[in-house]
Amino acid sequence: MQIEFMHQPGNTAARIALRPGETLTAEAGAMIAMSGHLGVSTSTHKKGKGGLLKAAKRLFAGESFFLNHFSAEREAGEVWLGSALAGDMMQYELDRQTLIVESGAFVACAHQVDIDVGWQGFKNLLSGESLFWLKLSGQGPVILNAFGSIYPIEVDGEYIVDTGHIVAFNETLDFSLTKAGKSWVSSMLGGEGLVCKFRGRGTVWCQSHNPKSFGKSFGSSLKPRRA
């Protein structure tokens, strides 16, 4: 499986070349073009890995209930994937580790990667991120997308990421919700509110822009929705 990104970071598309026998699993709606001879199947789960329960959990995580599987059976082929929001994409090679992914950031993965929904505790209710996170584990490539550019931060000790900016992080990291700086009053007045403090050793990938902040910058000029 060869993955290549184009038009980064503004309007990124991923081109995935599949060798015979390889299958790519992608979020429903992500495919923008593909070779005509690829087999496509839609399921609520990875074959032989969980079932409706996992799909229902994924729905909670803000992801689609369905996943599409693109398989190159006898002949090689390619799939192009895009995302709804303008922004960057990244690839991560899982090698028997676990990556925690902000729901909504998931685009696709190799068929053999396991997708599960993780619970990061009630702190997520307040964090402005979604309550559930995807847990990708196993072996193979993973493709994620974001609103804005993606930049990695190597954490060794502690690092602060504003809520709404997390794309994914290694399972070796843990985060808690806290204040920016030393004082709560200051953090609230300064408009940063709650921030996520990561602890441990690993990488956290951040998206440069916050979809909510962008929404706020022009949302009030949009006409109200008819009830």
Binding site: I153, E158, Y159, I160, V161, D162, G181, S183, V185, M188
Partner: peptide, 16 residues
């Protein structure tokens, strides 16, 4: 500007 911080080292001081 307020809310401009996207990420930072945890030991920087922030004051509004």
């Amino acid at each position: 500007e307020s809310d401009a911080m996207s990420s930072m080292a945890a030991d920087l001081d922030v004051q509004a």
